[in-house]
Design a binder for these strands. Structure first.
Length: 588
DNA sequence: TCGATATGTCATGCC
DNA sequence: ATGGCATGACATATC
């Protein structure tokens, strides 16, 4: 009882009155029942005794075979008539009281019976009520209604069933159901094929068993059975018995007003109720329940978001495609060295014409890599296709419809498929993307020429090719830009190569020059050495020669007074150092 | 985080 | 006049 009380206080539907779970209460009822049975037995006993007494007073009429009252003495008549009448009256009353008691007893019995039924089929009574006019159980005193009320459950069924079949066969209703189920089930991630068909075609075959067997309230069965069918796995056991309170409350309304609108209207509150109540009931499933309650709000938004998103993307891409045109001149004039500030919206819009720079800007965006651009166009195409799908969104229950519910996620997935690998071989992908960037541009404008051709063909051939293909202005501009960029790229590569080669050559020359310098320095030092040596030799030779010279007297010349000098003709003269002495020239 | 390096692109001058 | 080349300068990504 404590548990029951706890549940009861939490306003959780127990499927029956709280008293039902009270053992003492049941005991009391049992005792009461016993007492009534005893009283009834006593009454029956009394009745039999009275009947015996009556029979004892009767006399068999030989002719008619009837029991005829004996002719009593007059004194006795006063007493007997009452006795005589009384039995008659009494018997009538007795029948009435007996039936009333039976009714009461039945009432006593049916109460638990009804409750027992309610627990198993909580909505028995409500379904019966409309056919039985009100609540016979409560109005119980009259036996007829009660007696007629117990069997009816089977009676209204075929009608009800038929009514529900008709109701469920109404297209709008099916749509209504569809929406409901879709809103409820789809967000859960159940596949469209699993949900929509169940909702669409075999609706009532699916639900009818419940209706026929258990006689549940249609609203309950329709709404929550589909709901339950989808979530049986998750909710089984968690929701032992459907909340009869809601059913009993809502059923009369349902049966009272049997229109489609009311029916449809009924689904929404009921569903929300069920979801909410389930969410409240479930411990773990609570999150699911809340998620369910929230999702119907989110799901309708998604297509809108996508349409906007796709619109934006498609629009942007289309603009890019259309306005690609502006040409090289535009680039050189407009885009000047402003590359430093690529993200300017003005540039984006006005000079979008200069697609290339924009592309560059887009591409070179730190966050978005080259592949972003390459993905932009496929993305736009996908977006357009999805938009097309969303156009057919109105078709209920279609797989496209289901898809349209997740296009954003699909997009995200697509984008996600492309992007995540970035982390791994990012470099390689980037390089590939870079290499094929102009090809992507050409694809974007649907240029039917290979980029290699565009770049590498000689001018004449290139012009001829251009003349062959009828290209619009944008395409021509892009082709020219591609050619220019391609050639300039090669030129830059060559230039850098040459520069590197030049640098290498200069470094090599520098090395050789250094080596030569070394060599020259060494040679110079050698020459210096030789020169010094030669000077020494010459000096010694000079001294030797000078010392061998003698004057007329046979005396050697003083080196301080004379010196040997050689003239250009090769003659050597002894020249006096002092001027006052006139020098004599002596030949060898 | 910073510097070095690689690469693409633009602007410009020259042929 | 035009196309192409050469090259300095800039931007970005990557190491």
């Amino acid at each position: 009882m404590e548990l029951i009380d706890i549940l009861w206080r939490q306003d959780i539907d127990l499927g029956a009155g709280r008293e039902v779970f009270d053992y003492s209460h049941r005991q009391k009822e049992h005792e009461l029942q016993r007492q009534r049975q005893r009283e009834e037995e006593e009454r029956l006993q009394r009745l039999q005794e009275e009947k015996k007494a009556l029979l004892a007073q009767l006399q068999l009429d030989e002719e008619t075979g009837e029991f005829v009252p004996r002719a009593p003495p007059s004194s006795q008549q006063t007493t007997t008539p009452p006795e005589k009448v009384q039995p008659a009256v009494f018997t009538e009353e007795d029948v009435g009281t007996l039936s009333f008691d039976e009714c009461m007893q039945l009432l006593e019995e049916t109460f638990p019976l009804v409750e027992a039924i309610e627990t198993s089929a909580p909505t028995l009574d409500p379904s019966v009520l409309p056919a039985a006019h009100g609540s016979p159980v409560m109005m119980g005193p009259q036996p007829q209604p009660l007696l007629s009320a117990t069997p009816p459950p089977q009676k209204p069924l075929p009608d009800l069933e038929q009514a529900w079949m008709e109701l469920l066969s109404i297209p709008e209703l099916q749509q209504c159901l569809n929406m409901q189920m879709g809103d409820v089930v789809e967000p859960q991630g159940y596949s469209a094929t699993s949900t929509s068909p169940v909702v669409q075609e075999p609706n009532y075959p699916f639900y009818l068993p419940k209706m026929t067997d258990v006689i549940t309230v249609p609203a309950e069965s329709v709404c929550s059975s589909g709901y339950q069918s989808s979530f049986e796995g998750a909710f089984a056991g968690a929701v032992p018995a459907d909340s009869p309170g809601q059913a009993t409350l809502e059923a009369p309304d349902l049966n009272g007003a049997f229109s489609v609108e009311s029916f449809c209207d009924m689904f929404y509150p009921d569903l929300t109720d069920t979801t909410i109540s389930h969410g409240g009931l479930l411990g773990e499933g609570g999150s699911e329940g809340t998620a369910l309650a929230e999702l119907p709000e989110e799901t309708p938004v998604k297509p809108m978001d996508i349409s906007e998103f796709t619109l934006g993307e498609g629009f942007a891409s289309k603009e890019a495609e259309v306005e690609f045109p502006d040409s090289d001149s535009g680039l050189s004039l407009d885009a000047s060295p402003n590359n430093g500030s690529p993200e300017k919206s003005t540039v984006d819009d006005s000079s979008f014409g200069y697609s290339d720079s924009d592309m560059e800007e887009m591409d070179s965006n730190p966050g978005s890599t080259k592949s972003d651009y390459t993905e932009t166009f496929p993305l736009s195409f996908v977006a357009e296709s999805i938009q097309g799908n969303s156009g057919a969104h109105s078709q209920p229950g279609s797989s496209q419809d289901q898809n349209a519910g997740h296009p954003k996620t699909e997009l995200a997935e697509d984008a996600g498929h492309d992007k995540p690998p970035f982390t791994k071989d990012k470099h390689r992908r980037r390089m590939e993307a870079r290499l094929s960037r102009d090809e992507q541009r050409a694809k974007a404008l649907q240029i039917p020429l290979a980029v290699d051709l565009i770049i590498n063909l000689p001018v004449d051939d290139f012009n001829e090719l251009m003349s062959k293909h009828q290209l619009n202005e944008a395409q021509l501009a892009l082709v020219r830009d591609i050619r220019r960029r391609g050639k300039n790229k090669v030129a830059a590569q060559n230039c850098r190569k040459r520069k590197m080669e030049s640098i290498a050559g200069l470094e090599c020359e520098l090395d050789s020059l250094r080596e030569e310098k070394e060599r020259l320095l060494q040679e110079r030092s050698e020459n210096d050495t030789n020169l010094r040596q030669a000077k020494q030799e010459l000096s010694s030779l000079y001294k030797e020669v000078f010392s061998m010279l003698r004057d007329e007297e046979g005396k050697p010349y003083s080196p301080s007074e004379y010196s040997l000098q050689q003239t250009s003709d090769g003659n050597v003269y002894l020249v006096p150092r002092v001027k006052k002495t006139t020098g004599k020239t002596r030949g060898n």
